[in-house]
Design a protein around this nucleic acid. Structure first.
Lengths: 207, 207
DNA sequence: CAGTGTGAAGCACTTCACAGCC
DNA sequence: GGCTGTGAAGTGCTTCACACTG
């Protein structure tokens, strides 16, 4: 398939959240205008985004919420369970693993790793913290799909290398570090420091 | 000044991080090529990004690390202290407030708020959790610059409204909700669910 | 006739390529 | 000679506008 822009995929996530909220309120259909209003974009953008994957609406009528929900879930790969491992038994990892929305969407935390001997073996949000040295052997056996990296910046690249070596192809990196991955591995960065600096820039340059 | 793209501002943050790391290793100058390699972009992009704000390099030589560091800090508004309040005394807020990098860059947490009576009054990372109802009065007195929102999605919009009403002009939203702010208020969203769905999409559609 | 689906136009960001300067 | 600074060209995302259809 033709390459889809990252911005498009992010908007699909937003549309899906709207559909879920909207369905809960008992509605059966919606329009590109409604979706656009919720997502903070335009109706043309919504229709264009969806058009990359097919035509899911009815002219003159709009979109069936149930149908479009199913389509978006399928497009986003949410029709199955994804196994997630968390590397770094700290607060960020914990915030993630206890967030109900993940389980709802099929992201299941199957293991937590740390390199601190004081943490290894202790209970942690329904898991037992494992030694990071076990990652490769565990991965061969349990085949997780996604690794969430929530460790200090200095350790980020070596741990990414380990994760990649183990054969995990998707990484969500919370470490405030610029890390490299080989082709075939998908990396997303969430950098809170960068976001705050973006706000700082905006405040500094507001009129 | 001409409008600067969000992507440019984000890269400036990355450049700054590189300069800080690089200075620590004793180097005095660097080049657009070095910066590009670290940031995962091209040297032309680096030079273009910087050119929006002036010309900070020396042809044939490169950039003085000390000088460019100072310039970037100034551009990003990091030359002063920003007062931050955290709304939601949970794990995400805690992870943020204990992260050393923020204090280093001049982001100082001055208060933490929650609506849970069991949390209000108890100690929390060097603060005492305050009642969310005190936000407006406190803001009038203490003049925080930035609010970090780390609460459940359902409560997000009302709390954003309260923050805006109190007069805070920059919000970092961790709630997985699409919230609206009036013109003049800068909002950044960090949505972990969306990032994971982006990975799910990539895994689903990998070849 | 209301609202989708889509080629075409518009716009913004990135890359190129080279003049300019140390 | 080497590397910056920058107009011009290129690319890709967004918006427009309208044909189409239930």
């Amino acid at each position: 398939m033709k390459h889809i822009a990252d911005s498009t995929v992010r908007r699909l996530s937003v549309y899906l959240r709207y559909l879920e909220e909207h369905a809960a309120r008992g509605h059966a259909t919606t329009s590109s205008e409604d979706l656009a209003h919720y997502a903070g974009t335009t109706s043309a953008q919504v229709r264009k985004d969806l058009s990359f994957f097919g035509s899911f609406g009815t002219r003159g009528l709009g979109y069936s919420i149930a149908e479009l929900t199913a389509k978006l879930q399928d497009i986003l790969g949410l029709g199955r369970e994804w196994k997630v491992v968390i590397v770094g038994a700290g607060k960020i990892g914990s915030a993630l693993s206890t967030y109900r929305g993940f389980a709802q969407r099929g992201f299941r935390v199957i293991a937590v790793y740390d390199n601190d001997p004081r943490k290894i073996g202790s209970p942690w949000d329904g898991q037992v913290v494992r030694s990071i040295d076990a990652l490769e052997a565990d991965t061969a056996r349990e085949r997780p799909d996604i690794a969430v990296l929530a460790i200090p910046a200095d350790d980020a690249q070596p741990e990414v290398d380990r994760i990649v070596r183990a054969g995990i192809a998707a990484i969500l990196n919370f470490a405030p570090a610029q890390v490299q991955v080989p082709p075939g591995v998908t990396l997303k960065n969430v950098n809170m420091a960068m976001e705050l600096e973006g706000l700082s820039y905006a405040l500094r340059n507001r009129d």
